[in-house]
Design a protein around this nucleic acid. Structure first.
Lengths: 351, 351
DNA sequence: ATTAGCACTCGCTGAACAAGAGTGCTAACA
DNA sequence: TGTTAGCACTCTTGTTCAGCGAGTGCTAAT
């Protein structure tokens, strides 16, 4: 059976309607609402075909049709229109994103907030993956007689610090020397290169009292650990209660339980990290995770320059307003990228 | 009518049972399960009295009784037994809390996680309120030719930093001088004392080029702002789905919606901050907030030395296992306090 | 003062039933 | 030959109603 143009138009009409109403769509509804110039009987026949081809399904004999995952897939890839953002939407995104946030994590969180607010679904995001960023500065600053702060700065402007106990007798110039040596050894390396072994190497090379060097190295390694340590943001979880597919308490519970597991979210977002900069859509059973096999997940990545450093996503019922989600995400992603470039540029002045 | 000992025993039995089963309790159930040596008819009479006195309520004529808020109040204040933590519970708390966390925020979050896990309700906590803490160190560290990191350390060991642009021509010794002057002026003050005005004062007093001083002061004020900026942690939200009182989807939604508002949570926890170190229980309508008038909120504070710096709480249905919640919270609070003292002691060595 | 007994109340459950929406099929039509 | 009108059939949903069970309040006996 061939999927001709008329079938496509009907399928699109059905999916558009179903996304809107969440009710199985009958042939009469389509004949009435959409100007296809066809009677309900004709549409009925076409719908039977579409079902046979696997694009539609019937909850029970005497009900209308609902889209299958395969139907949604076709819809997302070929059928759906693009939904421009409204002026208000654009405004509200800009307003939320253009506050000057200098902490990368805060920027991403804010993006997640606005993403869930615009789409009305649940949004999530992971903080920048900084493995690839480059260590710029290592400094040791004396705070009190026996305390020093180890400070680490990356090319992306991430600053981390760690308070360490140092020997009472350490002189300021010792600290300066340690700083200099560490800078020389470690600066220019990416975070992932600076693993424990590298740090150990430094430990052996330098001729400085271990009593001073060891705590400082501990501090560096703690800082590195903190940079690498990802955060997951989750926003708009209660939005799901607005959708009838989660009217069932067990469904809602299952969904929220998955989202409660930060590491599950992390994997979810991370698995699409290597993809190109397009927007990725996983529909229903296309998802690996059993618990969300009746949800759709729309993800994309954001970047500094050319390097992908993190990703964000929207999760909701398969009956999702794909056009709106995709254009919102697109717009917000661009905003993030712009802000990231600004922040990094501002801090590192690579120009 | 006098609330004699027998009435109390019956009331306690009813509430214990109701907390356990969530079903209205009939006279026969009490007569059977608890060894009170009384017939169901007698208990029936007593129950009628207890209802008249306002300790019990009847969902409808032919149902058993459920406790009223007033009943729970009496129960919490006078009737209930104490529930010792089991060895496993103690173990799991210790295990979770005794990892060496040096960031105060992380410690509190971890406490919140374990609190919700042990109690099976939803827990929340606010990060330390650091208004009262004292500024110990201000330092300005050059990072690149035109960038400097402003670092602020408090007596509680909180470290904040902020990257600022400074004039290219600024010499290292200028930065040291600024550091010294700022330290002299600001150290020893509490965070809340160092408001914009104080900073402005410093600006006028010092004879250093404004080009350098202004960004540094901005940095200090940004750091101060960050210290003051509270975080709210929320854990175990999906636990509520285990309780029949939230079986209704709208109830669950309403509850989760309240918890989604960070500033509402903040107020909720903050309003009990001035209280002494006891554990505070708000039952049902005792809560100010309409949306949680059928919930109970158990809160307490934690502290460094004698100063209360934050609070944590558990929220759940009024039918809450008060004895368990209270003893868990007590134990965890003590663990927090101990850890806090350790962290602060380690960093500031006040001894 | 306590208890046994009994009539009464009320919510819950399941069956029966009607209404409504939608389908598939057949036959008629352009 | 593709399209459409008509109709019988299916299945869900909502409603009504009777019967059951849990529990009460009251009265009379202990």
């Amino acid at each position: 059976m061939f999927l001709d143009d008329r079938k496509r138009r009907i399928l699109r009409a059905i999916i558009d309607d179903y996304i809107d109403t969440a009710e199985p769509i009958g042939s009469r509804t389509i004949a009435r609402k959409h100007e296809l110039g066809l009677s309900s009987a004709t549409i009925r026949n076409e719908m039977a075909d579409l079902e046979e081809m696997g694009y539609l399904a019937q909850p029970h004999t005497s009900a209308g049709r609902i889209p299958s995952d395969k139907g949604y897939r076709l819809y997302v890839d070929n059928l759906m229109g693009i939904r421009e953002l409204t002026l208000e939407e654009i405004e509200s995104i800009k307003e939320a994103m253009e506050v000057r946030i200098n902490e990368l994590g805060q920027l991403i969180r804010q993006a997640s907030v606005i993403l869930s607010r615009i789409t009305k679904y649940t949004s999530m995001a992971i903080t920048p993956q900084m493995k690839k960023s480059i260590l710029r500065t290592v400094q040791v600053v004396p705070i009190e007689s026996s305390k020093a702060l180890v400070i680490v700065v990356t090319n992306a402007g991430i600053v981390r610090n760690c308070m360490m106990k140092i020997p009472e007798k350490a002189e300021p110039q010792d600290l300066v020397r340690v700083s200099n040596i560490l800078s020389e050894k470690l600066c220019g390396c990416t975070i992932e290169q600076i693993n424990q072994q590298t740090i150990k190497d430094v430990e052996h090379e330098i001729g400085i009292s271990k009593e001073l060097l060891l705590p400082v190295l501990d501090g560096v390694s703690e800082c590195i650990g903190q940079i690498d340590n990802p955060e997951v943001y989750l926003e708009g979880t209660t939005n799901i209660f607005n959708y009838p597919e989660f009217r069932d308490i067990m469904k809602a519970k299952g969904f929220l339980n998955v989202l409660d597991e930060k590491d599950v979210l992390y994997k979810l977002l991370n698995s699409h990290l290597e993809n190109d900069s397009r927007i990725n859509v996983q529909i229903g059973t296309e998802n690996e995770l059993d618990e969300i096999k009746d949800c759709s997940l729309v993800t994309t990545t954001y970047r500094i320059g050319d390097i992908v450093i993190g990703s964000m996503g929207v999760i909701g019922p398969t009956r999702m307003e794909y056009p709106k989600v995709i254009s919102s995400m697109n717009y917000i992603r661009n905003q993030i990228n712009r802000q990231l470039d600004r922040i990094v540029g501002q801090i590192t002045d690579d120009s």
